[in-house]
């Protein structure tokens, strides 16, 4: 019986709690999606995607803890390293629409 199976309160385990927290982060991501879709400027979208990437890293880490799968952290690590690439690619692209790449 691992930590995530421990009963927290009223029959809810730590796993349920962590999954609920992850769902809350996804709700935050949906809120941030509004900024990514609406804009109005490209800088808003770049920032929104960056925040979404960081949010996803958190979600993946919480999922890994809740489901007892440490290897999920590998995926979170990939996003943490490559989300930066997406951000700099888009932000350099917005200057003169790719003329400076």
């Amino acid at each position: 019986m691992s930590v995530v199976d421990a009963s927290l309160a009223a029959g809810y385990t730590v796993e349920d709690f962590l999954l609920a927290v992850a769902a809350g982060f996804v709700v935050l991501a949906i809120g941030m999606l509004y900024r990514a879709v609406k804009g109005p400027t490209m800088q808003d979208r770049v920032l929104a995607v960056n925040v979404l990437g960081t949010n996803t890293v958190v979600i993946l880490a919480i999922l890994g803890a809740a489901l007892g799968e440490p290897t999920f952290l590998d995926i979170a690590l990939v996003y943490a390293l490559l989300n930066f690439l997406m951000a700099i690619a888009i932000s350099k692209f917005t200057v003169e629409r790719g003329g400076v790449l």
Binding site: A29, L33, A36, M42, R45, V46, L52, G53, Y79, M86
Partner: peptide, 10 residues
């Protein structure tokens, strides 16, 4: 393209 990146995150 940007929103498609967000799609892949989900």
């Amino acid at each position: 393209v940007i929103v498609f990146g967000a799609y892949s995150l989900g």
